[in-house]
């Protein structure tokens, strides 16, 4: 059977702009879920996640990684869940892990996740995000659910790149990915914009 691979959220992508100020890539093929603790079950959920995933579910807008999985705090007792193992076996095992302690909604086809970096990342993002992404206000591991150019989005900061430049990831509804790309490519153009890991089918 031919392997079914997920397609990009952007059906066609302009190739960026000359210069090396900003980079972007789409993190394709991720298992994405939203997870909400059931009433009175948060403690039980936390201990199961801690034991099986080696991760402490954040109690604030934050990004944490565990074993082959990552969590972003979206709201009280609500998280975004990501894994590179987007397989039926993973979805089934995660569902059975949280069992009656949380409700899970598969969003693998609902959201798109982009990773942005480069020395001028913050300058480009500041044109659309109304929150302060300066390093003093938004540390590695911090997250925020907000808007970017009128599009609802969640942004979190990962560890800096080896050259010291900041690295962010942004999730948003997949159906709005082209609108996001339109804003982002225009905003980053003056610094130069490079696609990394450009999917072969684009």
């Amino acid at each position: 059977m031919a392997e079914l691979s997920p397609t990009s959220a952007l059906s066609s992508v302009p190739r960026g702009a000359p210069g090396g100020g900003v980079t972007i890539m789409e993190r394709r093929g991720l298992a994405l879920m939203t997870m909400q603790a059931r009433r009175g079950q948060e403690h039980a959920l936390r201990s199961r996640i801690a034991q099986s995933c080696q991760a402490d579910l954040p109690e604030r807008p934050a990004f944490v990684t565990g074993r082959d999985i990552a969590f972003v705090g979206l709201g009280p007792q609500t998280w975004f869940v990501m894994s590179e193992a987007d397989t039926p076996a993973f979805h089934a095992s995660f569902r059975s892990l949280v069992g009656g302690t949380a409700s899970i909604s598969d969003q693998s086809g609902g959201y798109a996740v982009f990773r942005v970096g480069g020395r001028a990342t913050r300058e480009a993002l500041a044109k659309g995000f109304p929150i302060d992404l300066d390093g003093r206000a938004f540390n590695s591991g911090d997250a925020a659910t907000t808007i970017v150019s009128h599009i609802g989005a969640t942004i979190w900061r990962r560890e800096d790149a080896p050259d010291g430049s900041a690295c962010f990831e942004i999730s948003l509804f997949r159906s709005l990915a082209r609108s996001f790309w339109h804003w982002f490519s225009e905003s980053a153009a003056e610094y130069g914009l490079t696609w990394q890991d450009l999917p072969a089918d684009l």
Binding site: P61, G75, P76, P130, I131, A144, T146, I147
Partner: peptide, 11 residues
Amino acid sequence: PYCGERDLSEY
């Protein structure tokens, strides 16, 4: 209380 101080446009 969860997100911190945010602009009116988010509400």
